[in-house]
Write a protein that binds this DNA or RNA. Sequence first.
DNA 1: ATCAAAGTTGTGAGCGCTAACAATTGCATC
DNA 2: GATGCAATTGTTAGCGCTCACAACTTTGAT
Lengths: 327, 327
Amino acid sequence: MEDVARVAGVSHQTVSRVLNNHPNVSSKTRERVEQAITELGYRRNTAARSLVTRRSQTIGVLGSEMAQYGPSHTLLGVQQAAREAGYFVSVAALREVTPETIKDAMAHFMDQGVDGVVVTVPHPGTFDVLKDITAQVPMVAVGSIGDEHLTGATVDQRQGARLAVEHLLELGHQRIGHLSGPSDWIDAAARIEGWRDALTDAGIEPVTLIEGDWSAECGYREGLKVAADRSVSALFVANDQMALGVLRAFHELGVQVPEDISVVGFDDQPESAYFIPPLTTVAQDFEELGQRCIALLLDRLESGATGTPATVAPRLVVRSTTAPASK
Amino acid sequence: MEDVARVAGVSHQTVSRVLNNHPNVSSKTRERVEQAITELGYRRNTAARSLVTRRSQTIGVLGSEMAQYGPSHTLLGVQQAAREAGYFVSVAALREVTPETIKDAMAHFMDQGVDGVVVTVPHPGTFDVLKDITAQVPMVAVGSIGDEHLTGATVDQRQGARLAVEHLLELGHQRIGHLSGPSDWIDAAARIEGWRDALTDAGIEPVTLIEGDWSAECGYREGLKVAADRSVSALFVANDQMALGVLRAFHELGVQVPEDISVVGFDDQPESAYFIPPLTTVAQDFEELGQRCIALLLDRLESGATGTPATVAPRLVVRSTTAPASK
DNA sequence: ATCAAAGTTGTGAGCGCTAACAATTGCATC
DNA sequence: GATGCAATTGTTAGCGCTCACAACTTTGAT
């Protein structure tokens, strides 16, 4: 920086001012300094800068299941939005989610001196742990509807589930089962609620609820049972992967989809259009979710405002696994 | 730090020594200092530390297609290995891969002062761009077989392709086609080579090569053509997603798998076991790949050694899409 | 008892930057 | 032309840490 100052014929402080867009620099000198900067290929040292500003320009992303479709796309959105705003993104992926590992990862971030944290851990228990930690930095959580300490952005899962179930109701289905995710996941719980609400509103008692674990394997296992007892005419499955397993199970036992049983998934992964048959499902925009989180976090970081939690709307995608009820 | 020193009754330098595990500290004082540290809940300031050490303890991960199965799992491995070694992981995901965006992301990392970079961009052109940049930090690339400037870790794709093709040959297939990835991807090219080599070694001329784009949609489109002309008795598909599309196309046109045509995929995503029928494929351990990359990078970082590029072995997983040739 | 060598601790400087303040300049006003 | 005020620039200190070196203490051999 001293070098740049010398070349431009000014003091190091003026260089600093140019770098930080301070108002009171004459355009003449600003230009000279900028030229010197490019001439010398100067880059300002982040460590020195954070030492004095107490800002690291880094945002931590704390997540689990980061290789899954949803989280990985959320990370993409977070990463892009953060980088555009001039922030660095540091990632800590939890292999398993326990209070221990969460605290570990947060300690990691505190060591690094991140300015804020985005949490994409889909278990509500996580939020309790995080509240205990009393982090010194703003946090935003994916899936949090907005606690006073923990705002967040979320896809309206309940609405998504409603969309799916109402679509089935319109087709004349009455016995609509739900193969859900693990009920200790926020999203799974919300989808269960949406399913339940939609049925109740239609004057139907929600009966068949099967708790799954998101995996295709589980979808297959439970699909075999459903195919055997035929207690439902339609099945709303909480994600596309389980739906894949269900489809396979039905196929094996000769249950025709959608003639015998209709199936609706959730997520709209790109592959779902190529399932046999192509899956009717609910699409959600994870990247936007990530972007919203960063927007929220930057608001808090830069203006101190708490910001209202953002909600992203899901969308029903009708393909070939749903048809009017048979009788 | 001064506070800790006061509580422990030593100088700040001794505290620093304890923190850095310097040998010449008596166990008595070390203990006292450690106690003071926990008592005060002291954490050393990373910015100040990097300012003087010129190390940021941060590794940059430069990647594209980060939400795909392979890259996202690689990131998981990288992240875990790095964190265990006390490093932070900063991510830059490329939305599109051009010399521009690559340089941008690298500039981002240089600004941040990363100690090293892991590159997971599967286009060989990337390496050329990176060589031009003359980065001041060590780099390791996934998929690079080991240039002198750019070592890397890689799954032996060629071997994986051989495994697949040889399996088909053993089943008596002669006309074995290949639906490949885009040929400007390193992995796609290696798989093409493996397919070609295996056939040539068996005295068969490799004829049917179709270039795809990794997507299920493309698998479907090309699958329809293959089903129509029936020029092959087996198809080796370069990834599981395209294989899904192929399966769907065959199903639609009444081509039985594996009775009429055998199919082998590549990747072994968890869903592949639940395709209709379950997919024979080649498994590769992406997480290990990521870990190896970090091991390599840390070697260079800490000992200066260039390190020999690591190779991870793929594994054939036989399921139900392959059967003996019909005649 | 004496000295050298090793082990242990303390002192001062400085990494590169920004904040606060001081000093200078330009410009309009009387 | 003197005065005041704003705009612009320079000077100094210090963020929290590690490095190099100096100073002191122990140990063991003579």
